[in-house]
């Protein structure tokens, strides 16, 4: 697979080195079509890192190319923002219009897509997020999950190659979270590169890869099965392990050994029943 994001030695300080660095010498490589989660505690540098990808933050140190564009080149910024879309945490802060279809069309209008082509693109985007029929609805009448899906449709309409979800599920109720997670998987399935940040670690178990960040550094990268069951590593990153992993170790301390450390609820149930059937 070809590499779509390639970063080397990225460092960043919010006040130009006068205080702690938010990013320290981060190397980053993401393949086209990959589904990557970036995990870390509050203040570990996750958002700072992803905001470099579409040049929301200006590169201070190191090198970063995204889909062939150098993020330090301001002439490419316009293209870059289109290629690399972003969905943020608070659904209410992302709307520019009070009508769904106008909100989705906003980005297209800015990119001077011909007026006659806009309705078709808006409809296609609504189809993708399962919100067809909501064209004329008021944005403030939607549920949290629906709002995030509309924000996502606005991003999708621009046909980005990379979509970043910066804690896009944090403010949603459980139903809304499920909706947004399903959308992320769907977009991954149609070939988009997905980069997501979350504090709900169980959301990351099905990703292709997870990257752990701590105090501005990328301290580990690998398959969820390897990274998220490594309790020593997670402790170093100040991240709470997924619940099935905690159960595994708590049972171990009670003298109960499951066949191996589970990562998902389903695996945990499977291993518990396998052990029980031997008793």
């Amino acid at each position: 697979m070809s590499v779509i994001v390639k970063g080397k030695d990225i460092s960043y300080s919010y006040d130009f080195g006068n205080s702690a660095y938010a990013l320290r010498n981060v190397d980053l490589s993401i393949a086209k079509g990959e589904f990557v989660y970036i995990l870390g505690c509050n203040g570990s540098g996750k958002s700072t890192l992803v905001r470099h990808l579409n040049a929301l933050l200006k590169l201070q140190h190191g090198a970063l190319s995204v889909a062939g564009f150098d993020v330090a080149n301001e002439n490419d910024m316009w293209q870059l923002r289109r290629i690399c879309g972003m969905v943020f945490q608070n659904p209410d802060n992302q709307f520019v219009s009070s009508v769904v279809e106008e909100d989705i069309a906003f980005g297209l209008e800015n990119y001077e897509v011909p007026r006659t082509e806009i309705p078709a693109k808006v409809n296609a985007a609504l189809q993708v997020v399962d919100m067809a029929g909501y064209e004329k609805r008021a944005t403030n009448s939607l549920s949290g999950g629906q709002k995030q899906r509309i924000a996502l449709a606005g991003v999708f309409a621009l046909d980005p190659e990379i979509i970043i979800f910066d804690e896009a599920t944090a403010m949603l109720d459980p139903e809304g979270r499920r909706e947004v997670l399903a959308m992320m998987r769907k977009l991954h399935d149609v070939g988009k590169t997905i980069i997501a940040i979350t504090h709900y670690i169980e959301e990351a178990v099905h990703a292709d890869r997870v990257i752990l960040m701590h105090e501005g550094a990328a301290i580990a990268s690998g398959k969820p099965q390897d990274i998220l069951t490594d309790v020593q590593l997670l402790k170093q990153a100040e991240i709470m392990p997924p619940m099935p992993v905690r159960v595994y170790y708590d049972l171990l301390s009670l003298g109960i050994r499951l066949s191996s450390c589970p990562l998902t609820d389903e695996e945990l149930a499977e291993k518990v029943c396998a052990l029980r059937s031997k008793i």
Partner: peptide
Amino acid sequence: EPIAGLDPYGRQ
């Protein structure tokens, strides 16, 4: 909704 956006240890 006091704990949205906090990491798990922060929540705890």
